[in-house]
Design a protein around this nucleic acid. Structure first.
Lengths: 198, 198
DNA sequence: CAAAATTAATGAACATTGTTCATTAAACAA
DNA sequence: TTGTTTAATGAACAATGTTCATTAATTTTG
């Protein structure tokens, strides 16, 4: 019984890993039942012995990617000064991650997770991602004066919306036209919110 | 030669109208070559005598919908006080329109317009929509003091990103869970930007 | 160890997509 | 009326997700 469980989990892992690789390299457009199964070394039909459908499989990747993104972002923001400055840096690194992996942006924000059992959970994983990244620096900034905790949380929620929208336009609509423009524009906007006007 | 032109344009119009009806009622998920042709009273193959592919047809609707949305929004914001207050109202009505027609939100912001000839133009139509709506009130607010023109434009661009992101989360991810929550939260955020902090 | 029973892996098949193209039907010109 | 251009169409194809009965493998049992 235990061996069953382990083998089954392992096979599921092969499919998940294959899916993650495709999402990273080609994005959602590269995903198909047959491409995943090929990459995993199985027939497309086998996939349905381990997952209800292809969307379940795809959304399982969200948790893994959030973890990877979290490490990528904390790495990039280690040098920043704790508190408000690092909150700014976190928001920008958060944006940069999705610019680096636009396929994951699409998975997180655009692909809709209908009718799947744990959809609410996955949605929270995405929605609270930036807030969670900012938790410790939020406390630091609150303790060291300047801003009330509630006020700061509201601003981070605003930045959460702001960055998602900016990415949506930039990655989907080609506006601003260049990464540099996108980056400086967003930087300015985030700073304006964090520092309370500019 | 003239009759040809007129008839051709008329037939194109039937397809466009059919597409718009489907987009309004069912959204992008209701769109297929066959469903459009059915609604237009033609065979699916006929569509290809008038449009390069189904995406060209779908994106032709963007201009029409922008016009319709523009009227809807100006109607809803007529009573608001010109200048900064109406800019706030415009941003909220803009959001409300897409809540009312989520299928059009998807068309505008999510459906990607690849490789189509006038894609850049269509992208601008979407990206500059809110800014254009605010043009006159932007001037009013600038003339009547308070805020520099450039500064105000920057803030409207920020609100543009903000609203798009908030809608993305609300319509795609079910967060906030209720319309009331979404509405009050966004209201507060927009006010904070327009009034420079809160 | 061999036979039986359970479990895993698979290809055939179906429905639905977008798209192309040769053929039919219609409108028009001679 | 006949010949020609043009519009409308269904057949056909490839790619998609999904289901299911059938193989192949593995485990259990006598």
């Amino acid at each position: 019984m235990d061996k069953k469980q382990i083998q089954e989990e392992r096979t599921r892992g092969y499919f998940v890993e294959a899916t993650k690789n495709i999402l990273r390299s080609e994005g959602v457009k590269g995903i198909s039942v047959r491409s995943i199964a090929d990459a995993a070394g199985y027939s497309f039909a086998t996939l349905y012995n381990y997952f209800r459908d292809v969307r379940e499989l795809v959304f399982i990747c969200v948790g893994d990617f959030r973890q990877e993104a979290s490490e990528w972002i904390t790495q990039k923001t280690m040098a920043a000064k704790p508190g408000l400055p690092r909150i700014e840096a976190l928001a920008m690194a958060y944006a940069d991650y999705f610019v680096e992996y636009p396929g994951i942006f699409q998975l997180f924000f655009i692909e809709k997770l209908n009718e799947i059992s744990n959809s609410q959970q996955t949605a929270g994983l995405v929605y609270n991602f930036l807030s969670d990244l900012c938790t410790t620096d939020c406390e630091v900034a609150t303790v060291s004066g300047q801003l009330g905790n509630e006020e700061l949380k509201d601003r981070i929620e605003l930045i959460n919306n702001l960055v998602a929208g900016a990415l949506l336009f930039y990655l989907n609509r080609i506006s601003p036209p260049s990464y540099t423009d996108f980056r400086t524009s967003l930087q300015k906007q985030v700073a304006m919110i964090v520092q309370g006007k500019g």
